[in-house]
Amino acid sequence: MKSHAEPNYDNFDLLATLVAVVSPQGQCLFVNSAFEDQIGLSRRSLLGSSLPQWFMLPRQLQETLAAVARNDYASGRFDAQLKRLPGVQPEALPVHVIVNQTDSTERIIVEMIEIEQQTRLDREERALDQAQANKELIRNLAHEIKNPLGGIRGAAQLLQMELQSKELTEYTQVIVQEADRLQALVDRLLAPHRKPHVVGDVNIHEVCERVRALILAEFPRGLAVQRDYDTSIPEFRGDREQLIQAVLNIAHNAAQALSQRIAEGGACIVLRTRVARQVTIGKTRYRLALELHIEDNGPGIPESIRDRIFYPLVSGREGGSGLGLTLAQTFVQQHQGTIECDSAPGQTLFKILIPLP
């Protein structure tokens, strides 16, 4: 008869990090779902196996486990490479390993944090801070422009009424038209901040189909917009029009970047939807999330602006306003989501993650 109840480790399944409970010799007594997903084997297959065998250099873990078991120190940390099943890419996963004692000398907790995941979380946090700073900058700048703009337009109209020469009135018309153009730009800058967040049930595939129809209507020849949908994705609460605008801004940028391939007849944009499990967005863990990819086979984003594409007024295209991706990021963040980009010549991939119920 056991003197202590068997510990329950179910809560470890809620963590984004990889967790294994092992004996001092490294035998797996428990692994969480994140560990299963990364290794590519079920929990049943992993229980009883040797955890060090899943490391490129097993000796470091073996020595740390032995030292923690002897109580040389309560916790040990090191960086390592975790093996994965052949065919699971990448086959070596860089992790930061934390080995901790428990209340039992027969059980040691080994936590493995993906180094890439930590980097991504840091990047997301910086992106959120930058987006907030961008919003304040845009709002202040737009208001500063808007106030004198009305005066300029009004003065030009009054001057136009006094002028007798048709040639001179053409100049005042230019002033009015350019003032109107700037007014439209200011309205676009302010729109995300003052538009109410309309919440309803959103079907992401209806959003994708609407965007697909709009893109194909503008680029009817030389461009294929392919679908790769997971139709099991549930509806979620959100603003359908905002999400259409966000996806459209990205897809439209892609189509414009594909101009040369469109002329050659080989341009392609792929709209892909998947369900991501156990996703961390910002500092919050979600059981399920929508993963939407917008991928194109264009020339890629210029390296000089690749790290700044979500900043306002940054554009890689002649005549571009540099607002499309800024607005897309704002709309996705209003859905507690995040947007990332990976670009190289021949392939640009935007990935949108939004929590699902």
Results as ranks from 00 to 15, higher is better:
186 V>N: 05
186 V>H: 06
187 D>N: 13
188 R>T: 05
188 R>G: 05
189 L>F: 07
190 L>Y: 08
191 A>C: 00
192 P>I: 09
192 P>G: 05
193 H>V: 12
195 K>I: 01
196 P>D: 05
198 V>M: 04
199 V>Y: 04
202 V>E: 08
203 N>Q: 10
204 I>W: 01
205 H>F: 03
210 R>E: 13
211 V>I: 10
212 R>E: 03
212 R>G: 00
214 L>A: 12
217 A>D: 13
223 L>A: 07
224 A>Y: 08
228 D>P: 01
230 D>T: 09
232 S>F: 04
233 I>R: 07
234 P>L: 04
239 D>M: 02
239 D>E: 13
239 D>Q: 06
240 R>N: 06
241 E>P: 00
243 L>C: 05
244 I>A: 04
245 Q>S: 11
245 Q>G: 06
246 A>W: 00
247 V>I: 15
251 A>P: 00
251 A>W: 00
252 H>V: 04
252 H>Q: 15
253 N>A: 09
254 A>C: 08
254 A>H: 12
258 L>T: 07
259 S>T: 09
261 R>N: 13
262 I>C: 09
264 E>K: 13
267 A>D: 06
267 A>W: 12
268 C>E: 15
272 R>D: 10
273 T>Y: 02
274 R>G: 05
276 A>Y: 08
278 Q>F: 02
279 V>Y: 05
280 T>C: 14
281 I>R: 05
283 K>C: 03
283 K>Q: 15
284 T>W: 06
285 R>F: 06
288 L>E: 15
288 L>G: 02
288 L>A: 13
289 A>Y: 03
289 A>T: 07
291 E>Q: 15
294 I>A: 03
294 I>P: 03
295 E>I: 15
299 P>Y: 03
300 G>W: 06
301 I>P: 02
301 I>Y: 00
302 P>S: 06
305 I>H: 03
306 R>G: 08
309 I>V: 15
309 I>L: 14
311 Y>F: 09
311 Y>I: 04
311 Y>C: 11
312 P>R: 01
315 S>G: 00
316 G>V: 11
317 R>L: 14
